[in-house]
């Protein structure tokens, strides 16, 4: 069974239709890249999959392991294994990162009927992952993302991804605001999480990120639909010729 099936999805924000009959199928273990110019609907797709309020789905469906994702609250989707790495992770003053991570992890486990992590096991796990991502311990004591640099915020997203072990990771413009070193650390973190059970959807404007996270499939979005799908070589072709050809086609 496919992990994620998006079928003829139509989405509106206020009076504007953002996605028109968008379809996409992702199987376990696959890495899909979604590319496209600004305003093509890439981020909207990621928000709708994660359950962000403010979008009206007027047609089509999203199935996650055959279940209707659109019927679920955002926290239920997270517990089922959907993870969105935010383009702009928010700052939450007064909520210590460590407390947040533990509360979130245990909420997901509780929703799945699993036992809560013991404190020593939890700490051990966080420390291991943090170390591999080059995240200093004192960052974990601070408020969530408070005073973090762009790179630190993205690494904190990947830390959560590693901790929650989702089966579908959606990375929304992970490369925005990152210099090349920060990008490499983040990409290494993502690559370490690739596995035959886990699928990834990498949303990006630039081909650059795909040098580090090499996709199995590339989809080009323009004006709210997928206009072209292919292998990783499609990304290279885009780099040379740009998005204009597809925008005309759409």
């Amino acid at each position: 069974m496919a992990l994620l099936e998006v079928k003829d999805l139509q989405v509106r924000v206020e009076d504007r239709e953002i996605l028109h009959s968008l379809s996409l199928t992702v199987n376990p273990g696959e890495v899909h890249a979604i590319m496209g110019p600004n305003g093509s609907g890439k981020s909207t797709l990621s928000h709708v999959i994660a359950g962000k309020p403010g979008y009206e789905v007027t047609g089509g469906q999203i199935l996650f392991r055959g279940e209707d994702l659109l019927e679920m609250e955002p926290d239920e989707r997270a517990a089922k294994g959907v993870f969105l790495a935010f383009q702009y992770p928010v700052e939450i003053p007064g909520v210590a990162t460590m407390n947040f991570l533990r509360t979130a992890l245990n909420a997901q486990r509780k929703a799945r009927g699993e036992s809560e992590y013991s404190t020593p096991d939890f700490l051990k796990k966080v420390r291991e992952v943090a170390k591999s991502l080059n995240i200093p311990q004192d960052m974990l004591k601070r408020g969530v993302n408070v005073g973090f640099s762009g790179g630190e915020k993205k690494r904190n997203e990947i830390l959560q991804m590693a901790l929650f072990e989702p089966s579908l990771c959606i990375l929304d413009e992970m490369d925005s605001g990152l210099d090349i070193d920060a990008l490499r650390i983040a990409a290494d973190g993502v690559n370490a999480l690739r596995s035959p059970e886990r699928a990834m959807v990498v949303i990006t404007h630039y081909q650059r990120l795909l040098n580090y996270i090499v996709p199995d499939y590339v989809h080009v979005m323009a004006k709210g639909r997928v206009v072209k799908s292919g292998g990783k070589e499609l990304a290279l072709r885009l780099e040379e010729s740009g998005y204009a050809q597809f925008e005309d086609a759409a």
């Binding site: 609250e73 955002p74 926290d75 007064g94 909520v95």
Partner: peptide, 29 residues
């Protein structure tokens, strides 16, 4: 803040728990 609430909910916190965490942070200071 709706954007903070959505972030917490996207990480698995049910609505009331997400609110509770933000309220705690608000009075915590």
């Amino acid at each position: 803040d709706e954007s903070l609430l959505f972030y917490l909910r996207a990480r698995g916190l049910p609505e009331k728990e997400a609110q509770a965490l933000l309220i705690q942070a608000f009075v915590g200071e």
